[in-house]
Simulated assay, not measured.
Amino acid sequence: MSSPLEILLLDDEAIVGKRLKPALEKIGCKVEVFLDPQLAVARIQEKTFDIVVTDIYMDEMDGMQVMDLVHEKSPRTKVIMITGYAMISLARDAMEKGAFDFIAKPFKPDDLRAVIAKAAKALGMDIDPAPGTQG
Rank of each mutant, 00 (worst) to 15 (best):
D68E: 14
G124Y: 03
K47R: 14
R92F: 04
E60M: 05
M125N: 04
D128I: 10
E60P: 04
P106C: 05
I44E: 01
R43T: 13
E6M: 09
M81K: 02
S3M: 11
D93E: 15
M67N: 04
Y57M: 06
Q38H: 11
D111L: 04
Q65N: 08
I15V: 15
K108C: 00
K73L: 13
V66L: 06
I27T: 01
A91F: 05
M58D: 10
V53K: 03
M95F: 06
M125I: 01
M95G: 04
L9I: 11
S2V: 10
I27P: 08
E60Q: 06
Y57C: 04
V16E: 10
G84D: 01
A122E: 14
D101K: 06
M125H: 00
M67S: 08
P37C: 12
R19A: 13
F102M: 05
K73C: 07
K18I: 15
G124H: 05
E96M: 14
T83H: 06
P106T: 05
E60L: 06
G132M: 07
K108Y: 07
A14K: 14
I44W: 02
Y85V: 08
K47M: 09
G28K: 01
A114K: 14
A42S: 13
F34P: 02
I44K: 08
I116P: 09
A94T: 09
D128V: 10
F49A: 13
I7N: 04
I56E: 00
T77V: 08
D101A: 12
E13P: 01
G132R: 10
I80S: 01
K97W: 06
K26Y: 05
I82G: 00
G84I: 01
P106M: 02
F100D: 02
G17D: 12
K30S: 12
D128P: 07
I44A: 06
I15A: 15
F102W: 03
M95I: 15
F49D: 04
E96V: 05
V115N: 00
R43Q: 12
A99R: 05
D68Q: 07
Q45C: 08
P129Y: 00
A114F: 05
P109D: 10
P37R: 12
I27K: 01
Q134I: 12
A99W: 02
K21E: 09
R43C: 10
K21H: 02
T54D: 03
F34Y: 14
R113Y: 01
A120W: 02
P4W: 00
S2D: 15
M81W: 04
V66E: 03
D110H: 03
T54Y: 06
I82W: 06
L9R: 04
K26F: 09
G98P: 11
E96T: 03
F100Y: 15
V33Y: 09
P75N: 02
M58W: 04
A86H: 06
L112H: 11
K18H: 14
A120T: 05
L39A: 15
R113K: 14
K47G: 03
K108A: 08
A94Y: 03
L123Q: 08
L24I: 09
K47V: 13
G17R: 12
D36I: 07
